[in-house]
Amino acid sequence: MIKNIYIELTEKFNDGRLRAVICSGQAAVLHRIAVMSKDGDWIIREEQESLSHITQILEGYGAVYRFGAPLDIRWLKEGWSSHFEFMQGNLRIRTDFFTRPPRISSEMLEQLWNESEGKHPPFINKHLLAEMKKTNREKDYAVIGEIARRMENPRDIFLYSRSARDIIELAGAFPKALEEIKDRRELLTKLPCPTDELEKELDAERRKFMHANEERLLKYSDASRKWSEKWPEVRSLVSGRPLTESHAIISKNAEGVLPFAP
């Protein structure tokens, strides 16, 4: 198996049972698509045993909280994310966690947990990776483009492709698949059309996804304003403490300041 801090952490998070699945940038590496992220991200089980276990593992690495939501179901179930950091030698390791990643339905999450059982390491499939990459960053759409190229089912390629040329070529080869899938992606309803028209649709779609993510982040930013003002005080309270102690202090201080729902 590949030896890497993120694999090592995943193995420890999942000691005894499946609690955490690698997602985002390091999943892109494991799909052999790109190496472009320094941080580790995991979708984790929304249950206390998993959160407590993960906190214990991070404590063993000397991890500290970064500004963010407590690793606590009350916040995580409303889409908040929790962030930690530690040094391993000269490597700065950041670990980010969520139980409800954006654009992933509960059915997709259930499927993720089922298909991840027994995998070493478990990491999200191409569909989920493509959905999670619909962020407000331009570079993520290049990754979606490459993910789509690696998909095998024409229906999946129709849903995620970022190439007008590829889509038009596929439409010629798989008209039935296009007919079955076109209602799930607006720009597919424009076919048949010239390449440059589809390119404009792709650009507009990308902008729409980016704006949607920006609006989502703005909602959380507004909701965390008071917490951000309180953070220096909270940070000084937990300075030098083991993570499990810090967690209890941070959670207590976040109550009533960082809303559970943004």
Binding site: F67, L91, R92, S228
Partner: peptide, 23 residues
């Protein structure tokens, strides 16, 4: 790691984008 100083206030994923400015 050479960019750690530049990105120390930033978040790559999740709902937080930047370490609070006031901090």
């Amino acid at each position: 790691q050479s960019t750690n100083e530049e990105d120390k206030e930033l978040y790559s994923h999740g709902v937080f984008v930047q370490y609070p400015v006031s901090n």
